[in-house]
């Protein structure tokens, strides 16, 4: 019952947020939502299944272009274009399955790196469809006669997608699917002996991960309103990777924390050129030193039940709720 109240409270707060926040803050929140979904996707693959990827910007790009092109060129309704973008990206995920079944850790990482580089190279050259280097304007998302033309409206779209994707991830992680992923990550042989097919579950992990990131890409295209190939480079792949690792690998709240934190960090750091980068880099190093298992790992460690004894009861309930 208490959980229910706290959940509804959190939801109300999120739903009412546009009343208190500036449009610019909402825009950044929308971007945080985009990265949150992508980070969840990467976490399901890398954090849970142990398959390293530093090429997820490729899936983000596929999702973004699919999300923009389907309504623009094929007149696909907007509500359908987002899941379709996810599915197209998910199918592209199977490309990485072939190396993933043969390769381990660092060798797979280079294959994913190559995938990212390939997508970044093909997109600008496929001028007829993508508009080349200049990029393309994304048509405004419209839904039941409602045009999502403001950050507030997009905020609700992002919020709905984020909540759905978090729930989906929770279901996956808490079921035999998620257990099979972790089993493959920790003991491939034992997993096989227990009847878990590496091909099937690695394929599922790649599909799901690419699906998530594709959805994130589609959302990205609507939030930004304009996409160009240069945005989906190695730096973006590494950004998603950092969000996952800094938030906490193999943890859903970790993905939330990591994505929101690293989306907001550059915006908090305005100043003369270079300072932003410096503090960003320093923040990464500090988090690694002081929270080796990610920010979420750190939070969990310092909110262990024995450390909460001295907190007043209502506050303790909130902390326990957040902790999960």
């Amino acid at each position: 019952m208490r959980r229910f109240i706290l959940w509804s409270g959190a939801l109300c707060l999120l739903a009412l947020a546009p009343l208190f926040l500036r449009s610019y803050t909402l825009y950044i929140l929308n971007m945080a939502g985009v990265y949150l979904v992508a980070t969840l996707g990467l976490n399901l693959l890398t954090g849970y299944t142990g398959q390293l990827s530093i090429g997820h910007a490729g899936f983000l790009a596929i999702g973004a272009y699919a999300g923009a092109l389907l309504p623009a060129k094929l007149a696909v309704p907007f509500w359908l274009s987002i899941p379709l973008a996810g599915i197209i990206s998910g199918l592209a995920g199977f490309i990485l399955l072939i190396p993933a079944l043969r390769l381990t850790a660092i060798y797979l990482a280079i294959a994913t790196l190559g995938f990212g580089a390939a997508v970044a190279e093909i997109l600008p050259r496929w001028t007829a469809v993508t508009g080349g280097y200049q990029g393309m304007k994304v048509p405004k998302a419209a839904f039941l006669g409602l045009t999502l033309d403001s950050d507030v409206k997009l905020y609700y779209l992002a919020l709905i997608i984020v909540i759905l994707m978090i729930l989906l991830a929770r279901n996956i992680v808490g079921s035999k699917l998620g257990r099979a992923f972790v089993a493959i990550r920790d003991q491939e042989r034992a997993a096989q002996a227990l009847g878990i097919s590496l091909t099937k579950y690695k394929a599922s992990a790649f599909f799901i991960s690419a699906f998530y990131t594709g959805i994130a890409g589609a959302l990205y295209s609507f939030v930004v309103g304009y996409i160009s190939p240069g945005e989906f480079d190695l730096a973006k792949s590494l950004l998603i990777f950092m969000m996952m690792a800094l938030g906490g690998m193999g943890s859903i709240p970790g993905s939330v924390v990591g994505a929101v934190f690293l989306t907001f960090l550059p915006h908090w750091l305005s100043g003369f050129r270079g300072l932003q980068q410096f503090i960003y880099g320093a923040a990464l190093v500090l988090v690694v030193i002081f929270a080796p298992y990610g920010i979420w790992g750190f939070v969990r460690r310092w909110t262990m039940p024995d450390k909460l004894q001295r907190l007043p009861r209502p506050l303790r309930a909130v902390v326990e709720f957040v902790r999960g």
Binding site: V182, A183, D186, Q187, A191, A193, L194
Partner: peptide, 14 residues
């Protein structure tokens, strides 16, 4: 061949 980061119950469920 246990999965060290899983709980006992989750190991059994695998």
């Amino acid at each position: 061949g246990l999965f060290p980061y899983m709980t006992v119950l989750d190991n059994l469920l695998v």
